[in-house]
Design a protein around this nucleic acid. Structure first.
Length: 269
DNA sequence: CGCCAGGACGCCC
DNA sequence: GGGCGTCATGGC
């Protein structure tokens, strides 16, 4: 990892990293692009860890007001800086479509997000659009002045959540809170369980189906073999992989999925 | 105004 | 066990 300390900031050089692609690709919903003189700057957080980060030139980043301890202990992990994405893309490049997708969106990194926050976020995401998902999560965080734990939300009913204006998803959120607080769902156990068992448990939560379960596994538990299939990825599979997804990429299919998703959605523009 | 949004549920046959 | 209407809300 190539970084240095500069006054109160951390400067990072990382070529397989593009801030826009990583923070605005639909894997996380609490990052806001703010005006700056840099290539781009984002403010955001996971749980109650706040950060302002800028891409100051291609592949060079500033973590503003971050100590070396915070960087190494928290953000390096969140941005998955210990993983060599060049090597991953090297493996993916054996496949023609994946190779193109990597070339197109090779700056995406798989964020290591909090499993609980991810569970609630992707329950909210179903049959919804990204601007509105962000709004609902923002109202939730504003109400607790950070992303609430299940403990903090203990006992909330769907009616209590009306201020979120999350529609039919309120009862799902309420049920997720109940499952976690009762111990019926243990996210750290699920994170370490065999993937089929993990899927089965997650889908016990109302409002969690195949797609949301895969998203929680991939984004919230860093299970890189999880593979969320939505309408866009379904299209990719039908069009480019009629005989199945290449075996050599399955271990990291979730990361490949991110490249493919971004590629298929934006390549025509 | 109607259509759609990174789906899941409930009911149908 | 696959197919289909329904579910709230608001962006476009």
């Amino acid at each position: 990892m190539d970084y240095s300390v500069n006054n109160n900031d951390i400067i990072l050089s990382q070529k397989d990293f593009n801030l826009d692609e990583t923070l605005d690709c639909g894997q996380a919903f609490r990052w806001k692009k703010i005006p700056s003189d840099f290539l781009c700057t984002y403010e955001g957080c996971f749980f109650n860890n706040n950060l302002r980060i800028s891409e100051i030139s291609k592949g060079v980043f500033v973590f503003h007001n971050v100590t070396e301890e915070e960087f190494l202990g928290k953000w390096a992990d969140y941005f998955d800086l210990h993983t060599d994405y060049s090597q991953l893309k090297q493996i993916f490049s054996e496949d023609e479509t994946l190779s193109k997708a990597c070339e197109f969106a090779g700056g995406i990194r798989l964020l290591r997000q909090d499993s609980w926050e991810c569970l609630i976020s992707f329950i909210i995401s179903q049959n919804n659009n990204i601007p509105r998902i962000k709004g609902i999560i923002e109202r939730l965080c504003d109400n607790y002045s950070c992303f609430p734990t299940a403990e903090q939300m203990k006992g909330v009913s769907a009616d209590d959540l009306a201020y979120l204006r999350s529609g039919f998803r309120g009862k799902y959120i309420s049920h997720a809170v109940e499952c976690v607080n009762s111990g019926e769902i243990n996210l750290s156990y699920i994170a370490a369980a065999p993937i089929e068992e993990a899927r089965m448990y997650l889908k016990k939560i109302k409002g969690v189906g195949p797609k949301v379960a895969e998203c929680v596994l991939l984004f919230g538990m860093h299970r890189t073999d999880a593979f969320p299939v939505d309408v866009w990825i379904k299209r990719v599979l039908e069009e480019y992989y009629p005989n199945g997804f290449p075996e050599f990429a399955k271990e990291n299919a979730g990361i490949a999925q991110q490249y493919l998703f971004h590629y298929i959605r934006n390549k025509g523009e």
